[in-house]
Structures are given as structure tokens and as C-alpha cells.
Design a protein around this nucleic acid. Structure first.
Lengths: 346, 346
DNA sequence: GTTAGCACTCACCATCTCTGAGTGCTAACA
DNA sequence: TGTTAGCACTCAGAGATGGTGAGTGCTAAC
């Protein structure tokens, strides 16, 4: 059933008042504060309808109404006004983000602090995940006898390294030869391309350094396979500024969840990552039991086809969606810019 | 003034009861639960003395006594019994830590989860800091045109990498030459050794790749200088299991502090890092205003002279010190073992 | 269809009292 | 002289009580 224009206005007023005050909203207050040209009694009738239709609920008989999940959903989809950040907010943001980053890791981990500072909600950032990684380059660096460092650079620009040990003696020039042999043979390949047959061929060509090859290849495969997105969390304590978390049990539930980066990562991966749009999960929509009282707002960032990741915030369902969405969009744009520059795409 | 044997026993009983129950301890209870062969009245007299001496305090007239910071300090220094972990605890710990770690980063970040799981308190781990780093090896890896990866391996086994861009064209073999030239010239040097004069000499020898050299050298210097210890935090939500943090303001203070890794790092660096011993800061001893209601227990780990770092926990002043100390010792030993193996010192 | 009026509900707050754990002091005991 | 029993006193915390006010739903009039 369609909502009448009047019902929409009232619903919007209720959601916005509730977001602002965290207090159940009564008909009188709406009549007074928003001049809709309606009396409290009329609004009361409409509110009763809205409640029946599932958009509102009552904490108890003699309190005002609060939006239900459905109410928020409708608000977010159809009523929410675009919020424009103030000049101060924008310039503050620019200033914060306008520093020299030089490591991918650095940007990503600091961006979570930026987000939480701007939105006043806990922020989560997923480290970029490579779509379908291919090897760009593999290097071996001897660091002491029988111990080397393998550095793998992938398509997506992700760099990984690991220390390996092996049993055969090898000198500097030999390891360079091995290194470029491996690199040449693996360059451009995806995990699927590195078949046992191909490895076998390489193995035979390697002669005495076959053992070394095996270790390196298994590490490379691991790098390509890696799907686990690292997650950074910033400003988690911000959640405590919201009265819905002054109940210590609620707070504990939240922080326990956030303690596990794995949990958070899983939750993030449940959010759509298809589009340029911002996705919002309200309350139980996230499908995560212990987050049923929180909402999650996530933006996807990507640099060309290479990097892909998410930034977002977690807050109470009673969240300032309009403001959060605008802020996230803004930060996301800026982030993509920075990453793009870092990836050398000017 | 020396404490009589009897006062010591009573103080110990009070501290331990208070740690166990979080309730102020009354004379009657001590008389009943610990058979010291004394009546409640006698204990009362002694308690009055202990209070006068500063070891105990009263939340209010008709409550029992709780230990003051001085009381905890005396307990920790002189009364605390060694706690032996149970067989279950030990085997659980062994099992948790007995997995294949392969990146330094991985061990360090997971160890914080282990610590918090074992102790039930929030855990902090400082990523190893190099004492006085020297360059072991510098490598340049071309990843696309005019873009390379610099990998620096130091003495301490720390590996860092950064993407750099430069304006001159260079091919694979040339960059290898540049790479080994730089590496040879910097190997074994500390930050102090890399003087402008020396860099100038290298610069002249480099010819057209001088610009590249400058970028690389400045990154190397940064790697050597880096003093900032990364910090990992695990199980922060555990703090909420302690009744002293059911006050939301206390909780917020704690989490705000923990939100900033920098804060935590600074606090850790205030703890002594001289010895093999575990150091304990009780309440305001930490010198950090917002942590005045918490205690910090830290163990130093090191692998030879190379790696140096800290693991520890943060909890309420009413903390099970005995248990925490033993657990940390145990975990620390195990960690050193793992790191030692990883660093190839078998 | 809208609104004024009114009875009713109920969380919240302040106030009060009661209870019990704990203290300090005194006097008796070993 | 140190220890203990006894007792009056204190005070936080838990309930009980009642008043207040914001809010509702319903009815009747506009």
C-alpha cells in the first residue's frame, strides 16, 4: 500500500526527531516543531495508521512512537534528504586527508580514524581484496645463509613477503638467477594457471634448487589465493556516545563482536559489493545476530579493476543516515583519488 | 615501618578476597573464611592500623575495606604467591600457540588474542622495535614503468617495503645494477653512518639514476629511524566483565584511550624495558591520567639482541595479578621460542 | 476529514523506610 | 597486655509509595 503524502511527511518528521533526540516522539511535539498545518490529534490518527502498517512502534503505551526497522528502511529509501556537509566539515576533512601517505597499509589504517572522526561512529575499513590476482613479479633476496626473503608483487599491486629457510647453500648470484627464472615463469599467471604440471617442468629445469622452488611456489599460491580481507577498526569507543549503548550488556555485545576482525570482515563481505552505491543494512537486515541493534553503512571503493575494498561505519539503528551517507561518499571519493595516485595512475 | 607478620596475612587475605569478589571485605568475612585464629574484633583493630598506614581504604563508613594502590603494591611486591597454571590451562595454551606462523606480523597480531583469551583481560602487544638498526640489504624491484618497489631488510630482520615512482626510464637489468650498487654501499650501515657526504659520493657515481638514489636513501633512513612501535590490541571487550567498568563513563574513558594505538604505544614505552622481569604499574603509577583506574602488567620479550618488544595486559587495579603474571611469563617464553625459530636461530 | 476534550496509562523521579553488613569503642577476659 | 565479646551507630542499597507529566485512544463537535 502506498503511503499518502501526509503520512510520508509525518514519518519523516518522526524519524528525524528520533534520530536527533533518541527520545520517543509524541504527536504534540511534531505538531509544534514541524509546521505541517495539522493538529496533534490528526497526527495521532496518522501515527496509529503508520504503526498498524509496521512503520512505527511504541516502547510502551504512554510513550511516543519510534521508527521500526521498516520505518527506517522507508526513510532511507524514499524520504532521506541529501545532507550537505558544511564548509568547515569539508575543509576539515580535506586537511585531515591531505597528507603524504606512502604505504597502502598506512592509508587504509588511517582512513578508519578519519571516518570515525568525521561521522562520530565506529568505522570499519576492509583492506583491498584482489579480484583475480596474477603474479607480476617474484623476487628472492638472500638475507643470511640459507635464509631468504620472498617478495611477491601481484597484479593488484599487493606486496607480500615471507622469510623462508632452505637446506642448500646458495650464493648471491645464483639466487638472483633462480629469482629471475621463477619470476619469468610465473609472471602473468593466476592461481589456476600454476598447475602441478607447470611446476613440475620448472622443477626439472631448476636442478639442485628444486626444493627452493617448491617453497616459493607454495607461498606464491598462498598470496594469490588469499581472500581474507584484513579489517581495520577506528573509533570504536564512539558507540558509547549513543544512549542505546549505555546498557553495559549491549556495549559488551558490540565490543565482543568488534574484537574479532574476522567477524567484522565476514559481516562486511555480506554487504553487496556490486555497485558504486552505498549500501545500508538496518538492524537485523545484516543477518548477524549480535548486530541486530546496529546499522551498517558501507561504501565500496575501487581503483580501476585492481583494488577493491570497503569503507563504512557501524552505529545504532537510530543513526544519522543522511549525514553518514554524505560523509562516506565524500571520504570515498577522496580515498579513491589518493589510492589512484599511489598506484601510479595519476 | 615494617608490617607485622599478622598484618601481612590480613592484608593478603583482604587483597585476595577483594580480587576474587570485587566487594569490600569486612572483618567478619576474613575471620570466617581464612582461619587465622583471630576474631573479627582483632582483625578489625589490625585493619584500622592498616588503613592508617595507607594500605587500605574505605569506600564509606559502613562498608568493608578495599586495598589502596599502596596496598596492591605491597601485595605484588611481597605477598603475592606464585600461581601455577593448571594442566588444562597449559595444554590449552600450547595448543593455541602451536600453529604454523610464517610472518612476523602474523605472530604478533595473533599473540594478543591468545593473551586476552588466557588472562580474560584486554591484551596489548608492541611490535618489535629494533635497537639500533643497520641495513642488511636493499632491493629495488621494477613493478611497472617508472615505478618500483624498494625492499629494505635490516639487521633486526625487519622488512619494509614501499612503492616509489621516478621520472627516468629504466629497464630491468639497469635497475638490478642500481639495486645492487645501493645495497652494497649501504649494507652494514646504521642511520648515523649514512652521512650526506657518503650519499653525495654515491650520487655522483650513479649518473642518470641519481634521483632514484635519493628517494631510496630517504626511505632507508626512515626505516632505520623508525622508532614508533606498532601496537596490537586484543580482547578489549574483556574489560567490561569487570564490575568497575559497568559505569559507562569509565568504559568510555577506557575505550577512547584504547582507540588510539599511539596512546597505548606511549604508555607501553613508559614501562621499563630493561630487564627480563615483568613490570607492573598499578593505577596512577602508569602516569597516564585516563588510565588511573587500571593496572598494566607487561613482559619484555627479545630474541637475542635483534628483536625487542612487549606483551602485556591492561585490567582494573583489582586484577588477578598472580594469575596474570604467571600466564604472561608462560606466553612470553613460548613467544620467544617461536620468534627465535622464525628468525632462524633454531 | 479535522480537531478539541477528556479519561486513562505508565515510565520516571523523588521520598521514605527498612535491612543488614560493617565499623569503632568499651569493658571484660586470659 | 593483647584478645575478644558486646553493643550502639552508620550508611548504602533495596523496596515501597505516590505524584507528575508526556503521551495515547476514543468520542463528539465542528
Amino acid at each position: 500500500m502506498e503511503l499518502s503524502q501526509r503520512k510520508r511527511m509525518i514519518l519523516q518528521a518522526i524519524v528525524e526527531d528520533y534520530i536527533a533526540t533518541a527520545e520517543p516522539v509524541g504527536s504534540r511535539n511534531i505538531a509544534k516543531n514541524h509546521d505541517l498545518g495539522l493538529s496533534a490529534a490528526t497526527i495521532r490518527n496518522e501515527m496509529a495508521d503508520l504503526e498498524e502498517m509496521g512503520y512505527l512502534e511504541k516502547p510502551h503505551t504512554s510513550a511516543g512512537r519510534i521508527p521500526s526497522e521498516l520505518g527506517y528502511r522507508f526513510y532511507v529509501d524514499s524520504l532521506m534528504q541529501r545532507y550537505s556537509l558544511t564548509v568547515d566539515e569539508i575543509s576539515g576533512l580535506q586537511r585531515t586527508m591531505d597528507r603524504k601517505y606512502d604505504q597502502l597499509e598506512g592509508v587504509i589504517s588511517e582512513i578508519s580514524d578519519v571516518i570515525s572522526k568525521v561521522t562520530k561512529y565506529p568505522a570499519v575499513v576492509a583492506f583491498p581484496k584482489e579480484k583475480k590476482g596474477r603474479v607480476r613479479s617474484v623476487r628472492l633476496i638472500l638475507i643470511e645463509e640459507r635464509m631468504a626473503l620472498v617478495v611477491v608483487v601481484t597484479d593488484a599491486g599487493v606486496v607480500k613477503n615471507r622469510r623462508i629457510r632452505f637446506s642448500s647453500d646458495i650464493d648471491y648470484s645464483a639466487i638472483d638467477a633462480v629469482s629471475s627464472f621463477i619470476s619469468k615463469n610465473l609472471a602473468g599467471l593466476s592461481a589456476a594457471d600454476i598447475t602441478p604440471a607447470r611446476v613440475m617442468l620448472m622443477y626439472e629445469a631448476m636442478g639442485e634448487y628444486g626444493e627452493l622452488l617448491k617453497i616459493v611456489v607454495s607461498f606464491v599460491l598462498e598470496c594469490l589465493k588469499e581472500d581474507y580481507a584484513r579489517v581495520y577498526i577506528g573509533g570504536a569507543s564512539n558507540i558509547l556516545n549513543n544512549p542505546e549503548f549505555s546498557d553495559i550488556d549491549k556495549a559488551r555485545e558490540f565490543f565482543s563482536f568488534m574484537d574479532s576482525r574476522e567477524n567484522v570482515g565476514k559481516m562486511l563481505s555480506l554487504m553487496g559489493d556490486d555497485s558504486d552505491n552505498i549500501s545500508i543494512k538496518i538492524g537485523s537486515e545484516s543477518g548477524v545476530e549480535s548486530m541486530k541493534d546496529t546499522s551498517i553503512v558501507v561504501a565500496n571503493y575501487h581503483v580501476g579493476d585492481k583494488l577493491r575494498g570497503k569503507i563504512g561505519i557501524i552505529g545504532p539503528t537510530r543513526m544519522d543516515y543522511a549525514r553518514v551517507v554524505s560523509s562516506l561518499e565524500m571520504i570515498n571519493d577522496r580515498l579513491v583519488e589518493i589510492l589512484g595516485r599511489m598506484m601510479g595512475q595519476e
